[in-house]
Nucleic acid binder design. Sequence first.
DNA 1: CTGAAAGCGCTTACAG
DNA 2: CTGAAAGCGCTTACAG
Lengths: 337, 337
Amino acid sequence: MAITIKDVAQEAGVSVASVSRALNGHASITDDTRKHILAVVKRMRYMPHVGARSLTTSFTNTIGVLLPDLYGEFFSEMIRGIDGAARRRGLHLMVSSLHGDADEAALAIRAMRGRVDGLLVMSPHVDAAFLSDNLPEDLPIVLMNTAAGGTQYPSISVDNYNGAHAMVAHLVAGGYRRIAFLAGPSGNFEAQERLRGYRAALSELAPGAAEHVYEGDFSEQSGQAVGQALLEMDAGRRPDALFAANDMMAIGALLTLKQGGLRLPQDMALAGFDDIPIARYVSPALTTVRVPIADLGVRALESLVAKIGQPGSVPASAQTLGAELVARASTGESTPT
Amino acid sequence: MAITIKDVAQEAGVSVASVSRALNGHASITDDTRKHILAVVKRMRYMPHVGARSLTTSFTNTIGVLLPDLYGEFFSEMIRGIDGAARRRGLHLMVSSLHGDADEAALAIRAMRGRVDGLLVMSPHVDAAFLSDNLPEDLPIVLMNTAAGGTQYPSISVDNYNGAHAMVAHLVAGGYRRIAFLAGPSGNFEAQERLRGYRAALSELAPGAAEHVYEGDFSEQSGQAVGQALLEMDAGRRPDALFAANDMMAIGALLTLKQGGLRLPQDMALAGFDDIPIARYVSPALTTVRVPIADLGVRALESLVAKIGQPGSVPASAQTLGAELVARASTGESTPT
DNA sequence: CTGAAAGCGCTTACAG
DNA sequence: CTGAAAGCGCTTACAG
């Protein structure tokens, strides 16, 4: 067994209460006893059992983070934001990925009870009804990029609709007319909003133009598949621009189209969404909509901390972060890179 | 307050012991009482306090993961491996980044006590002496990519030395003679090993050739800086190949050199180390040494689980994973991408 | 099969 | 200032 506070107390010849007080910088303790105790602590290499402490103080200094995945450029950026904000406040992170269905999400949420002070959740499966069924009622939560926000639970999301709208406007302004859209997974809220933005902008700004929507799933592979399909079309019927609902699909298409001999953007313009780091590195560099991913994480954590600080008193609100168009070479801009 | 096991017991008209047994699938309980209890649990939406459970059972089903950073392609891949292996075993992850110095690492390790069953640590500041000072002695640990492995603590690392050696061999075989090396941070064990591999291979395979070592810090910026310096050299004195100690630096140099008008690999060959996802996407695609990053994470987790299962009985061992050369266009190979 | 009680390692009023 | 004791929410021998 490891050394406990009791061992330290015994060794130092004091009560466990005094050890606790010395350790936690309590005022009511003599300098001498504190020094003596801390010396013993050091000598014995005692480390407090944080789990036990949490049980009595009822706070854990830990935030639970539930994301669809823990890797890939998008989530990596998100984690960067969350981690930075958390460490600034001395908070630890308990993370979990949510690959599966709603049941798995429920399990993951439940597993957090008693180990975290609050929860940051991003999941397409999570809506208000689900949460009220599975969330311990006393556990603060902030949702990210979800359809469930603003009603009972605070949320923070990116303005996907206007971001997509702006991209279509940019393409139309660049002279492109046959603008195809490569959609994300249909069950995904963000994917839906981006598609909605594409449709609205197209009918507003290019009234005559027909919609071309390809199905995708946010993966590079689905971008490659659509790239392949485009290569096999008659050049005459082919769209002159492809707007993918995220960067990874755009990049999959880019590689396939280039390999198939198309010149980008002369034969086809290409655009994505997210502005993940890779977007700048491909050639031509990818025009995209910059989502302040890390920022989103920072803001979400800050909101959560605020909510933990004053439970109940903060009304559920839905924050939205703007998304900004980043024009690069894949839609004809001459960029230094 | 949230609902506790006591509330459930009272509501169901049984003892807390019975509730506990029903919840944990204990054998000695009637079907009827179990069903009744579980019904009450469901109706009250009770969720066990996992922290309290840990205190009595002394296991947490959680693994602590300490990495220099939580984001970027390298760590993202690492986390992917660890997360996958952990979820397969029903383990949760508590993660922490270790930006700072040894003190910060010590703090992070201590903060894990009582919340995790074991620790996965990757940190240049961690050596055997440090660990024996700061690690609770009953806490299993596995080190990754560290100099401290194999002695008192098990470790698993990549064969950086031979990987770098192989890359130099590849460059020499390709006809390159003035092969410069862009080193990583001097305090970093992996960086040291890669440098050592470069030096050894150069003197073995190209006896007459002089070493050219540039200092870097693994960041893209330091790659750009060296790229700039190379551009400003006389073409005659310029190295004909640059081997960077990691991919991000290689990519920084690649972008800068290209922008400066150099043709790659005709004017200069370029190679990296790690094979992060971006390496395939830049053009020319980057020749590199593939480090099985996710695999490293998987193996580390598996070792840790084994150690947790049989404390003390497993001798400290140092596993090494091979690193494989991946030849792409940046050193002259004609690759499809 | 079921319950009362001790105990996990801490913290914190409550006395003194 | 210091200590004895209760309590945080669980689990698990120990009786019955």
